[in-house]
Computed example of a mutant assay.
Amino acid sequence: MRFVHESLPQRVCFDSGGAARAVAAEIELVKAERLMVVAATPEADLAERVTAGLPVVVRHDEVVMHVPIEIAERARKVAANRAVDALVCVGGGSTTGLAKAIAMTTGLPIVAVPTTYAGSEATPVWGLTDGDRKTTGVDPVVLPRSVVYDASLTLGLPVEMSVASGLNALAHCVDSLWAPGANPLNAALAAEGARALHGALPEVANHPKDLPGREQALYGAYLAAVAFAAAGSGLHHKICHVLGGKYNLPHAQTHAIVLPYVLAFNAPNAPEAADRLARAFGTPSAPAGLESLRARLDAPRALRDFGFAESEIPAAVSAILPFVPASNPTPVTPDDLALLLRAAWEGSDWR
């Protein structure tokens, strides 16, 4: 047995109903006196409640999906002009991503308060988009110093978005089992995350105003993100990052749609990973278990429903191929990738 596993230096607080109390405690630990609160307009009231009584000097709401570089630059200037000494981000992956973009050039500590199951808050991964090209990287400076998980803050997340975001979290589990840095420790985290999400998401869909399902979904999303942070990006994430940046497709829905095709493609040549997922799902087959879950959730099914055109498939194949990990369990050819994208485009069965 030979592997390297890196544990991340981060405080994680689960406190349903107690976000304001927990955030105040984390800000006291970092000894911050001039806070920049990053939250998109729909989360502005929520962010104000969470940060009430704290030394906020600026509230920044220019949050855009995939973090365009020009948006990041403006936010960095705001932080510099207001002499900010810490960041609090309240929202989903795009909001956390913008806070990371600020931290990347300033070194400011982040206290993240997620309202979705995106998982970005638990990784040192950043992403920026320049034109139609999305670039991602890893830098420990962007890892939030603290994360506050309060399931009550997710109660307002619509079921449709909760499903897509939860399947995005599940994609972290799946990709972590065969990504370049996969190892037995992150496999254990990924399997437990998959088990928790598999049980939680139907509860969220059926009882969206109840806390237990939301709590388990956050727990599973956190485990998924920690596994992903150690393993790195596998084939699934490489595909989705290119599609999201190049065609401005919605992040969570793109992951939810592409995931079953990547799992079906890799599972035959990754039997140990497939067995782990099958056990987590409580089904004989990992692909079948995922499809059953997606059917129960009425998950998004086709990329064409979100603006991806069939005519773009050849260009997408060419853009994705350079980023395919050499360690992927199943060798990836241009024809295979084109078939996978075509099936995801139309939402059809494949293989």
Rank of each mutant, 00 (worst) to 15 (best):
G282P: 05
T333H: 08
D298Y: 03
L321M: 12
M161T: 05
M104S: 06
T135N: 14
A309E: 14
L8V: 12
P325V: 11
V84A: 02
A179C: 12
V38R: 05
R11E: 13
V141S: 09
A264F: 01
V63W: 06
E73N: 13
N186K: 12
E215H: 10
Y149S: 09
P68K: 04
A230F: 07
A188V: 12
T254W: 09
T96Y: 00
G53F: 04
L8H: 09
A164C: 09
L263T: 14
F323M: 07
D139Q: 10
A188M: 13
T96D: 03
A274I: 10
G156S: 15
A191I: 02
A319R: 08
L277H: 09
A267K: 08
I27C: 01
T129S: 15
F3R: 12
R74M: 02
A24G: 15
R11K: 04
S233H: 15
A302H: 04
N168T: 10
A103Y: 02
A39E: 14
A79K: 05
K246Y: 00
G18I: 06
L340R: 05
M104A: 02
R82H: 15
L303M: 11
E26H: 13
A227M: 00
N186C: 15
L249W: 11
L263G: 11
V58S: 09
P9M: 09
E73L: 15
T115M: 03
V148K: 01
H251E: 04
P208S: 06
G289F: 07
D61L: 04
L243K: 11
P250I: 02
P114V: 00
E70F: 07
L197V: 00
P250F: 03
R34H: 04
R279P: 01
P268G: 02
A101W: 06
N206Q: 09
R296M: 04
A225D: 07
A47D: 08
D150V: 06
P250W: 00
A264R: 14
T154M: 02
P271A: 10
R195N: 08
P329D: 08
I313F: 03
V317N: 04
T95D: 06
A196S: 14
D336F: 03
A217Q: 06
L98K: 02
D132G: 12
P271R: 03
T136I: 08
M65I: 06
P250S: 03
E33T: 15
V142F: 03
S233M: 14
R195V: 04
H207F: 08
S292G: 15
K134Q: 14
L29H: 05
R11S: 15
M104L: 13
L29Q: 11
E310V: 03
H237P: 13
A338M: 12
L211R: 13
Q216N: 10
T105R: 11
V30E: 05
L189H: 01
A52G: 08
Q10K: 13
N328I: 02
F14W: 11
V63I: 15
A286M: 02
A278M: 13
G131V: 06
D305A: 13
A194G: 05
F281K: 14
